[in-house]
């Protein structure tokens, strides 16, 4: 069972969910290049100028760890990264769990993604402003951080300390990507987990994903927001279990 974190954080995102599966599955966690404790030297602007670069990494991990017929769990942008990987090498995965997936964030004709190009530009600006160095939160390594003895130093040091330049490109690639035409090519059964009131992947987007992914089941959670694995881990775990048992 391989978990892929979304834009903005790292593999620690899964801390509340993975313990439920460690007894029954081999759990694989990783950080996308640029996030968490990944090797920043491995970053290559050209490779990561599209989500395919990230999908390639995912497949390399599967290859290295000899994963076939695995269960992929991807949050947000990583849902699409999983979709791309499953199209390229379907035998790697038996199931896809897509949490808050969106094939395209920007409105386009009849398609409602929830954002305009201007929104995304503003997000990138906000991002720049938060990375300027004053934000103690987002640059904990640079700024040092508050004492939180109940969390390990390791977590404090790495969590969400994304490299600013890489984060900027990842944000642009994530929010400007368009993977709508990829959806129908997926041959692996999938589950789309949709939250109430998700500002990033609204209900209509979840429904779009379900309609266009062959063999896709959609479960609407009571959880609100974009991170049910953090805000409602029990409900998220139950939905994934049901899907795996079905």
């Amino acid at each position: 069972m391989i978990f892929a974190h979304g834009y903005g954080c790292d593999q620690n995102m899964w801390r509340l969910v993975t313990p439920a599966f460690t007894d029954t599955h081999r759990v694989i966690l990783f950080d996308h290049v640029g996030a968490g404790r990944s090797d920043l030297a491995a970053y290559d602007r050209a490779k990561y100028s599209s989500l395919h670069g990230y999908a390639q990494d995912l497949l390399e991990i599967c290859d290295e760890l000899d994963v076939t017929g695995g269960i992929f769990v991807g949050h947000s942008v990583s849902a699409m990264i999983g979709v791309l990987a499953a199209i390229a090498e379907p035998e790697r995965f038996s199931r896809l769990v897509l949490i808050g997936p969106s094939p395209r964030y920007i409105d386009d004709g009849d398609y409602v993604g929830g954002f305009t190009r201007k929104d995304i530009d503003e997000l990138l600006e906000l991002q720049a402003s938060n990375y300027l160095g004053w934000s103690a939160t987002l640059a904990p390594v640079i700024m040092g951080n508050a004492e939180r003895p109940e969390l390990s130093d390791e977590l404090q040091a790495s969590f969400c300390s994304t490299d600013p330049e890489i984060a900027k490109q990842f944000a642009a690639v994530t929010f400007l990507s368009d993977n709508r035409s990829d959806l129908p090519q997926v041959r692996v059964p999938s589950l789309a987990l949709q939250c109430q009131d998700d500002a990033i992947a609204p209900m209509a987007v979840g429904q779009y994903v379900q309609r266009h992914l062959p063999a896709c089941e959609m479960v609407v959670l009571n959880a609100t927001g974009h991170c049910p694995h953090l805000s409602a881990p029990e409900e998220t775990i139950a939905a994934i279990r049901d899907f795996l048992d079905s």
Partner: peptide
């Protein structure tokens, strides 16, 4: 978008967020 992607996850996992 920023709240959902970064602020809330940080808050939930680290217990505090400063100066965002």
């Amino acid at each position: 978008l920023f709240y959902e992607n970064q602020y809330f996850p940080l808050l939930r996992l680290r217990g505090s967020v400063k100066e965002v």
